[in-house]
Simulated scan of single mutants.
Amino acid sequence: MAEIKFDIVENLGVLGISAKNWSKEVNVVSWNSRKAKVDIREWDEEHEKMGKGITLNKEELIKLKEILNSIDIEDLDI
């Protein structure tokens, strides 16, 4: 399996810390020297290991923001 190269261009925020002390973060990440995308996933403390995550391009991020702005979080059964 080929090695995945990544560069965390900017940290936008930490959503939480797991029991294993990994942080769920929102970052701008360039994967394999490609154009950076917004990325949400868990990282170990040294940012050497990562969990599964999701990457969003600009259009997807705009749509996600619209969706989140349109919902009433208090009405969600979560």
Rank of each mutant, 00 (worst) to 15 (best):
M1Q: 13
A2P: 07
E3G: 09
E3W: 07
I4T: 13
I4S: 14
K5D: 04
K5F: 05
F6G: 04
F6A: 07
D7Q: 07
D7A: 05
D7H: 06
I8H: 02
V9Q: 05
V9R: 02
V9H: 01
E10H: 12
E10A: 15
E10T: 12
E10K: 15
L12G: 09
G13R: 11
G13V: 09
V14S: 14
L15D: 12
L15F: 15
I17T: 14
I17N: 09
I17K: 13
S18E: 13
A19Q: 14
A19E: 13
K20N: 15
K20M: 14
N21P: 10
N21R: 14
W22R: 08
W22K: 08
S23L: 09
S23P: 08
S23D: 10
K24C: 13
K24S: 12
V26W: 00
V28M: 08
V28W: 02
V29D: 05
V29A: 03
V29Q: 04
S30Y: 00
S30C: 00
S33Q: 10
S33P: 01
S33G: 07
S33A: 08
R34S: 04
R34M: 07
R34E: 10
R34F: 05
R34I: 04
A36P: 07
A36Q: 00
K37Y: 03
K37I: 02
K37S: 08
D39Q: 07
D39L: 06
D39Y: 08
I40H: 05
R41M: 06
R41C: 03
E42H: 05
E42P: 00
W43S: 01
W43C: 00
W43G: 00
W43F: 07
D44K: 00
D44T: 00
E45Y: 08
E46D: 11
E46K: 12
H47S: 08
E48A: 05
E48Y: 04
E48I: 05
E48W: 03
E48K: 11
K49P: 01
K49T: 06
K49F: 04
M50S: 12
M50F: 12
G51R: 08
G51Y: 06
K52V: 02
G53H: 14
G53I: 12
G53Q: 12
G53R: 10
I54F: 06
I54P: 01
I54N: 01
T55C: 14
L56V: 04
N57T: 10
E59W: 05
E59A: 15
L61P: 00
I62C: 05
I62S: 11
K63T: 01
L64I: 03
L64V: 05
L64S: 02
K65T: 05
K65Y: 02
K65R: 08
E66G: 03
I67N: 12
I67F: 15
I67W: 12
L68A: 07
N69D: 15
S70L: 05
S70K: 09
I71F: 13
D72P: 12
D72M: 11
D72R: 12
I73T: 11
E74C: 05
E74Y: 10
E74W: 06
D75L: 15
L76A: 14
L76K: 11
L76H: 08
L76D: 09
L76N: 09
I78P: 10
I78C: 13
I78M: 13
